[in-house]
Design a protein around this nucleic acid. Structure first.
Lengths: 256, 256
DNA sequence: CCATCTTTGTGCACGCGTTCACAAAGACAT
DNA sequence: ATGTCTTTGTGAACGCGTGCACAAAGATGG
């Protein structure tokens, strides 16, 4: 995603593989839970199951950060929490703006998981004038006209876009021009940004479509395994699928 | 993310690589846009830029579905829309339940991108009795006590969890027991499910943490390259420059 | 101090996904 | 028909991520 031009070959940021970075927050959450239960140390095996990953993978991930474990014992929970937090940059304050205060924007504004991890909602911005001044999650919504000023005075470098698809690119451009260098995009649009700006995309409908694919596949498999019971229409159309259908193609069939 | 035991070995569902499946919805969206503009055919190069990917990758992706293009011309838009829709199982109706009608649940219920792609919100479910009967997105919220009945009578196989983290596993268990085999989880929890159930996770705070990591890295690099000038506030970046942003794109959204 | 036991850290092999680069296929003009 | 031009489809190479399996490191007990 991101730029319209092609990207570099899966950059390894400072030696830490992207895949590992993506898992660090997962470990952090599991560790935080342990910390709250005052558990002093944890083995790679335990932590791995808590985070839902393979223990070898976890150890390798940690090895990129340095050697923070003790053989025969495990990892010191508090120390690891600190190290991962530091690595992810969560020891500092990240002011964030949310643009587009519909249901989703409001949901994010209310989401507790942010504040607890160094993210502070600095401002809520919407294009609808009738929203301006309204309180959402205890914060007054501001008008999009003031976007640049807001970014500037708050030193915001991370922006969240929850506008309709049509407005996203335009908002993105303004955010970037105002100095934002990281964008979390919830709009169903491919954003084009200049070099040096990071974009991450969360697309609700895409996730569902991927699930549907697997769901369909499961249904088809089940049907195929089933004995010659009356599976829907018995007689069956003659050789359907005239030309297309990559070979062993099982047409769509609904389960449930 | 499922834990029970590990899942099929990164299964290539029916020969189509996971990575490709994850991109199909992206292509579909771009194609739909073209279709609405009555564009008859499109080349791999054009479609690739519209979808934000590499053209070679796109062609290879399509090659898994079969040979639907015409050399020297490109792909027939309408035909491709149909083929991908069919492949993803979007030609059929998928009833979906959303459990946990807070801000996020409401946002999803209102999200237009669902209905247009074969997904139908069959029911909204919440544990709070005072919510029961309330209309959200034109649908009456039902109580979680009736969860099993709702799943059963509507033939639901896909569930969306937007509850607080604490309730997620419990809800998940009930959904699965009632017959749901695909779950989209927005709660910040690692779900454990039996074999054969797919879970995809969307974690808002994880996405932000990944952005923070890269943001911090960019700031650090800039600082390192900068002459010993006072670099002001760490967060408020200023000097835009043609550096490289990481783009190896590993979504925090994981397959089960 | 030595033996044993636990758990980390990592070398290695394997497989998936990406990308390049090009031959084959078809369109189109002459 | 024949030649030229465009664009697909794919063989092959490469790089990243994963997981196994084990040696090294430290804890613990006698």
């Amino acid at each position: 995603m991101a730029t319209g031009r092609n990207h570099r070959p899966a950059t390894r940021s400072r030696g830490i593989p992207e895949a590992t970075v993506a898992r660090l927050p997962l470990y952090l959450r599991a560790l935080t839970a342990l910390s709250e239960r005052s558990v002093p140390t944890v083995s790679s095996e335990e932590l791995a199951t808590a985070a839902g990953v393979n223990s070898a993978k976890l150890r390798k991930d940690f090895s990129y950060l340095g050697s923070y474990g003790t053989r025969g014992v495990g990892y010191d929970v508090e120390y690891l929490v600190y190290q991962i937090s530091r690595e992810l940059g969560l020891t500092q304050d990240w002011p964030v703006v949310i643009v587009g205060i519909g249901n989703l924007g409001a949901a994010l504004a209310n989401y507790g998981g942010f504040a607890s991890r160094g993210f502070r909602v600095a401002a809520l911005i919407d294009a609808d004038s009738s929203m301006t001044g309204k309180q959402v999650a205890g914060i007054a919504v501001q008008h999009v006209d003031d976007l640049e000023t807001i970014i500037d005075t708050n030193g915001v470098s991370i922006g969240v876009i929850t506008t309709p698809g049509g407005a996203a690119q335009q908002v993105c451009d303004r955010l970037v021009a105002a100095g934002v260098t990281s964008i979390l995009n919830f709009a169903p649009t491919v954003l084009t940004v200049p070099e040096g700006v990071d974009v991450r995309k969360v697309d609700l409908s895409i996730e569902l479509q991927i699930l549907a694919f697997h769901e369909q596949r499961k249904a088809a498999e089940e049907l195929a395994q089933e004995p010659p019971s009356a599976a829907g229409l018995p007689a069956a159309s003659e050789g359907r699928r005239g030309d297309q259908g990559p070979d062993g193609d099982i047409p769509a069939v609904m389960p449930a």
